[in-house]
Amino acid sequence: MIKLEHVARTFKVGGELVHGLDDVSLDIKAGDYISIMGPSGSGKSTLLNAIGLLDKLDEGRYLLDGSDVTELSELEQARVRREKIGFVFQTFHLIPRLTAAENVALPLTLAGVDHDEREQRVNEALESLSLSNRGHHRPDQLSGGQRQRVAIARAVVTKPVVLLADEPTGNLDHASGIEVINILEDLNQRGITLLLVTHDIELGERAHRIIHMMDGKVLS
């Protein structure tokens, strides 16, 4: 489903060229559960951003569902992100002035989904994450674990094919972290391809496949 062929991404840091991704080739099947591990600066997040079409590639090809998305226009890449990819971030990235329900509805609002359908899908998403009674709360009225569950609800409300989670447990206590991973694994069991970036070896080893990275290269 996701195929990277010799992709490279280089950054200029303090006048020096740094390889964020260096000749990376990957083949990820639909429904895979992959954790990406490695030390800081090894290229884990860069890989996730490239797969999420948030970052441009300098070299190589990226095929998503068989289509080359490398050379798509900005507008088309935005559409692919909107329709096929869900993001879960370490810092949740919830908009503080919106309620939990409004945060979850945001991708549907941007996609122009009608109010009634939006409300129905938001309620389903909140219910599936046991947040039905929290929809009207603002992020600052929720615990860390609840905020991340709201962020997961927002990521899945558009029914994406791949979920990209960048250190989703990084800002949570152990119990909340386990709870969030259980939710992500449950989503994976329902068919979503899951790519998880983590430093936590215990959590990382729960994946079906582990990708180790170092200096922008995939080691295994």
């Binding site: 948030l54 935005a78 909107r82 990235h93 941007l110």
Partner: peptide
């Protein structure tokens, strides 16, 4: 800034 980044990640193009 972070909110704008989020909107882009959620699929909002430049025009939006």
């Amino acid at each position: 800034t972070a909110e704008i980044g989020l909107l882009k990640a959620l699929g909002a193009p430049r025009k939006q």
